[in-house]
Write a protein that binds this DNA or RNA. Structure first.
Length: 282
DNA sequence: CGCCAGGTGCTGA
DNA sequence: TCAGCACATGGC
């Protein structure tokens, strides 16, 4: 199946630290798991060739939604292009899209991502899926779905520690319990406006001021969200605060004013540009 | 080996 | 409200 993908750079997007389960495949392809389907993506200019373990009728809408292929972010990108620094970051990350991930996978993944580095996050989540996900054989290989909250709710934290989760182990289990027993309703939160969804998610154990913004942005499509991690903190202080120490809350409030209601787009461009060394001096 | 990583929760002022 | 601290782990 071929999907129109003009303006979407799959490589940049999947390499930008939003999702942790994609692996390069062949010279330009990527392979990963979307829900219960194994997906191979073969980008070709303005098109995206998609192969997978499910029928095209399932795969097409799933990939389209995940990458927002039916969305044209041109005007929202233009709306955050308000100064030379962000302009450079946007230019260096052309084609970067904000993913629309499954809320539970996004939430659990970013709980694992706290005070951690992307390489290890990928390893941890891979082991989590292998241990507690459902096996899906495909293409002569076996892949695993992301474990459901119901399954993880019954896992002993010590078992996750043995998978290298460190002090995050009890947070992942507790979050799974809160979601599976209905204390936190992700499907309902996904339909709430930014501020209310934010409050609902902050009730989850292990979800603080940064993780909540990641879930809002990468899981709920709330572009008003602006996650401040160590990279963004450095970049923002450098670019806009003469390297002075500024609390994360203030950085976020400034970003919302400075970049406007799609500040999340600016955040992801700054994050990826900084991490790939495209912003000199940061 | 020391430093760092897409932080959070708790404590004490 | 806010700074300071403990928390586990592995890649570099």
């Amino acid at each position: 199946m071929i999907l129109p993908a003009r303006g979407c750079d799959v490589a940049v997007t999947l390499d930008s630290g939003q999702a942790f389960r994609w692996a390069p495949y062949g010279p330009r392809g990527w392979r990963g798991v979307l829900g219960d389907s194994i997906v191979t993506l073969l980008p070709d200019h303005a098109r995206l060739r998609v192969l997978g373990s499910a029928p095209d009728a399932i795969l097409g809408p799933r990939v389209t939604r995940y990458f927002g292929l039916d969305d044209d972010p041109t005007w929202r990108l233009a709306s955050v292009d308000v100064d030379p620094a962000i302009h450079a970051a946007l230019a260096a990350t052309r084609g970067l899209r904000i993913l629309r991930q499954d809320p539970w996978e996004c939430l659990a993944s970013f709980i694992c991502a706290t005070f951690n580095n992307i390489l290890r996050i990928q390893g941890m989540i891979g082991r989590l899926c292998r241990a507690y996900g459902r096996a899906v054989p495909w293409g002569g290989d076996v892949w695993w779905t992301f474990p459901t909250p119901e399954v993880l709710a019954r896992v002993e934290p010590s078992a996750l520690r043995r998978l290298g989760f460190g002090y995050r182990a009890p947070y992942v289990v507790k979050a799974a319990q809160q979601v599976s027993d209905g204390k936190v309703n992700l499907a309902a939160a996904a339909r709430l406006p930014y501020a209310e969804a934010r409050e609902a998610l902050l009730a989850v154990e292990g979800v603080g001021e940064k993780v909540v913004e990641c879930v809002l942005l990468f899981g709920f499509g709330q572009e008003e969200a602006f996650p401040v991690d160590v990279w963004i903190g450095r970049v923002m202080r450098r670019l806009y605060f003469r390297n002075r120490r500024v609390p994360d809350r203030r950085l976020r409030a400034f970003a919302r004013r400075h970049f406007g209601p799609s500040c999340g787009l600016a955040q992801q461009a700054l994050f990826h540009a900084a991490r790939t060394g495209a912003l000199p001096g940061v």
